[in-house]
Computed example of a mutant assay.
Amino acid sequence: QQILIEQFQDEEAIEIIDNISPDDRAQLFDELPPKIVRKLIAQLSISEREATALLLGYREKTAGRIMTPEYIALKQHLTALSAQESIKAIADKSKISYYLYVIDNEKKLLGIISLKDLIIAPLEQTLEAIMNRDIVYAYTDTDQEEVAKLMQRYDLIALPVVDKEQNLLGIVTIDDVLDILEAETTEDIHKMGAIQSEGDNYFDNSFFQVVKKRIPWLLILIITNIATVFIMSNFEEVLEQEVALAFFIPLLVGIGGNVGAQSATVIIRGLSTDELKNKKTPILLLREAISGGLLGLILGTLTFAGVLVFMGVFALSITVGISLILIVIIAAFSGAALPLLFNSMNLDPALMSAPFITTVVDILGILIYFQLAQVLILNP
């Protein structure tokens, strides 16, 4: 869009921009250089300039910023026949959705009517008698992700946006919500991969920008993983007596990391889709801990048998087997607990993603493994 705008003649650019709906125009202006935006705004018609300025006045990623002021609102005293005539007169100037909005003289939102209900209603009946007073709406400062969730939850194709006095200011339509859901999901996936998300297309970034996005989290992970080095350095005596212990470190931390990532993924997704809204945190944690215990018991038993068959050392086998059981339980619990903790602190649970869960499990897993080895092998 930016490339096209820059290549158009001024007259062509203004004609196109002037005919874009206000919400799409505001979104485009957010992406364009300020110099071009100022030039385009100055040449818009007065009505379109005011509509655009209204939207740009709201904070980014809020309902006010993404709403369109092009909607059909009708006074409550109109009859169904009068309303139909009014709609015909203004249809080409408004963004018609499935819903019509009923307001009073001060533009306060009173109710909603579907086009179907208006068409089948008796022609002499007033809108006040037809309308649905049970309204789902958003405020201008409502976060756009919450707007998308509301429309998902109630299967809406448009959502009215009001101010604190319940005055109708605009509507958010389903096409905008689909874009929001895609952007929010992409942002969560980037966070879960420990990549900084700044809203732009990752694959359009330069090599420097790609490195900039990825290096901060990787540096944090390196610093936290140094803890495993310190832990292992404190158990040199155990490793010297049973060198084979080192063979199973990748297996233990790998299994633990994967189990933790699985738990974190389902919890983070459940939080983002509101599936866990009515679930009690202690029950969720207990569920994951029990699941981890069952998984650990199965994997630990199989690993114990495999090590005993191939290595023939009982103390080593039991150490690896018990360690695996405990690590899987801790991993499952941590993978669920840390995103829930972040969510309770009003932080994005996606930040507590697979790489961080894996790091936590690695540190705890190594500590458990060598403590057990010290008890069962060094001091049997």
Rank of each mutant, 00 (worst) to 15 (best):
P282Y: 05
L316H: 05
N234T: 00
K277N: 14
R214E: 08
R59L: 12
Q209G: 00
L178P: 00
Q9G: 15
A83H: 05
S263K: 03
G335L: 11
S82Y: 02
I130A: 09
I267F: 07
G111Y: 05
D92V: 10
T281Q: 11
S344N: 11
A73K: 15
N132R: 09
I222K: 04
S82M: 11
E242P: 01
E124I: 04
N225T: 12
I120C: 08
P282T: 03
K164R: 13
S94P: 04
A305V: 12
E106N: 13
V102L: 09
L56P: 02
Q196D: 10
V309I: 15
I112P: 06
S291W: 02
D134E: 14
I298E: 02
M192S: 09
T265Q: 08
R59C: 01
R38I: 12
E236N: 04
I87L: 15
K279C: 11
I72N: 06
E288D: 05
G64P: 01
L28D: 05
D348Q: 06
V136L: 06
V162D: 02
S272H: 06
Y369P: 08
E48W: 03
S97M: 06
G111A: 04
L245E: 09
I113L: 14
T301F: 15
N234L: 07
Y139K: 11
W217S: 09
A13I: 06
V210H: 15
F207T: 11
I180Y: 10
L340V: 01
L299K: 00
R65K: 12
A261T: 15
I20K: 06
G292E: 10
L239S: 06
D30N: 15
I325M: 14
F208M: 12
L28R: 02
I3H: 13
V307D: 07
G321C: 10
A246F: 03
F333K: 01
K277V: 14
L159N: 07
R269E: 09
A158G: 04
V259A: 15
L302H: 02
A350L: 08
E48P: 00
L338W: 13
T319D: 08
Q374H: 15
A73W: 09
E106K: 12
A89I: 05
T319Y: 07
Y369N: 03
T319F: 07
G365T: 02
F29R: 03
L364W: 00
I366D: 01
Y101S: 06
T126I: 06
I16F: 13
V161P: 02
T62N: 07
N19L: 11
L245W: 10
Q196A: 11
M131G: 09
T173V: 12
L150D: 03
G300N: 05
N205D: 14
L74N: 04
M352G: 05
F230R: 07
V309N: 10
E50C: 03
K213T: 04
G293K: 04
I46T: 11
I368R: 01
I171T: 07
A13N: 02
D23L: 04
D274M: 10
F248E: 08
A42S: 15
E128H: 13
I298A: 14
A183W: 04
Y369W: 03
L376R: 06
I189T: 13
Q7S: 12
S21Y: 13
I283Q: 12
P349K: 08
D23I: 03
P355C: 10
I130P: 07
D18Y: 03
I119R: 10
I325S: 05
G270Y: 03
Y58R: 04
D10G: 00
D274P: 00
